[in-house]
Design a protein around this nucleic acid. Structure first.
Length: 327
DNA sequence: AACGACCACAACCGCCAACGA
DNA sequence: TTCGTTGGCGGTTGTGGTCGT
């Protein structure tokens, strides 16, 4: 596995002096080297973390305390989970972002092993990209509606499908009228208002439950002896049966968003059709006009168009969803 | 093969709040 | 109360990899 940002075994981290202090101390900047990583890991294993400025000096690292802290928290910590954002995690991110906005650290608290930086990057590179493609603001109601009524049900559907493929007992319900109960630091319960099904996410794994969620470890104290090797980018937990990226990949993946049987009866539509329709609705167009506009829009005519059909029933359904949402 | 565009993500920056002297 | 230090947060940038032409 590659080591992004720290794979430079040739000590190629740039020596750049930005401030006088840095110049005096000959502080390093840029990618961390393996040696630096090992130094930091070993020092923390022995002395613990905190007091990062003095830690950096004591460890002999020519880095700012801030840089050490970030390197540790975002990359070197043993409980950092690396690899693809799973479907469950995507769902959580979407849900939590609708609640808290760009409170990345807060969101990260609910995704064990994921860092705020990782979630932030995920949001910026993938979610915002699609908002841009839809020519709307990522914080707009339209986009949030698209997430809520299109992406999230689809995510649940895919999680359900994946779960069904691996087990035959898990049942997950669409979170179209959901609430999240923060039972503890790392577990959630999605309560569907219409049905009595709950699913919970524990340590990044979604499960149907009828019992209170188990307590999840609150702290990840790192206690141990000297570490001599580092398992970079271990894909542990990074890829499950449901770990494919439902909307992180290019448009083609979106296009099949509603091509399969859909719990919300929105089948036979691709994501962009649905989204664009949603936006048109928000802008006050009538359904017939929307259909005519949509059928002539370039994005509808390009790519996977075999299933491009946005029928009145589905649009009425979506409209009903919006009305319910506004009540 | 070469090149440019795009993507993903590590790392950095600036700001701010908390805290202790 | 003031000031310096520290840690945390959200935003931004830099860079290597990938993909399409």
């Amino acid at each position: 596995m590659e080591v992004k940002g720290s794979s430079n075994s040739n000590n190629s981290a740039v020596l750049i002096s930005h401030s006088e202090e840095e110049e005096m101390m000959d502080l390093r900047r840029g990618p961390w080297t393996v040696d630096e990583d090992l130094t930091l890991i070993n020092y923390i294993a022995t002395h613990g973390e905190g007091r990062w400025n003095s830690l950096a000096r004591s460890a002999g690292l020519k880095r700012t305390g801030k840089s050490c802290r970030l390197r540790w928290l975002n990359y070197l910590r043993p409980d950092v989970r690396r690899g693809n954002i799973t479907l469950e995690e995507q769902l959580l991110i979407l849900e939590l972002h609708t609640r808290w906005g760009n409170r990345w650290s807060k969101i990260a608290q609910y995704l064990p092993g994921r860092t705020d930086n990782e979630i932030k990057n995920y949001w910026r590179t993938r979610v915002q990209k699609h908002a841009k493609q839809l020519k709307c603001d990522v914080n707009s109601k339209q986009f949030k509606d698209a997430m809520r009524y299109l992406w999230m049900p689809r995510l649940v559907e895919r999680i359900q499908a994946a779960a069904a493929a691996s087990t035959t007992t898990t049942t997950v319900v669409a979170p179209t009228n959901t609430s999240i109960n923060n039972n503890n630091n790392n577990a959630y319960t999605y309560n569907n208002n219409n049905l009595n099904n709950n699913f919970e996410v524990h340590n990044g794994k979604m499960m149907l439950t009828t019992t209170p969620p188990p307590s999840v470890m609150a702290n990840n104290d790192f206690v141990g002896s000297q570490i001599t090797t580092q398992s970079y980018n271990t894909p542990e937990n990074s890829s499950t049966a449901a770990s494919s990226d439902s909307f992180g990949t290019p448009i083609s993946d979106f296009n099949d968003y509603y091509n399969s049987n859909n719990i919300n009866n929105l089948g036979d539509n691709n994501f962009y059709q649905a989204s664009q329709t949603l936006f048109s609705h928000e802008q006050g167009m009538d359904l017939q006009s929307m259909m005519m506009v949509e059928s002539n829009t370039p994005w509808m005519q390009s790519g996977d168009t075999s299933d491009n059909f946005w029928n009145v029933e589905n649009m009425l359904f979506l409209e009903q969803q919006l009305m319910n949402d506004n009540m």
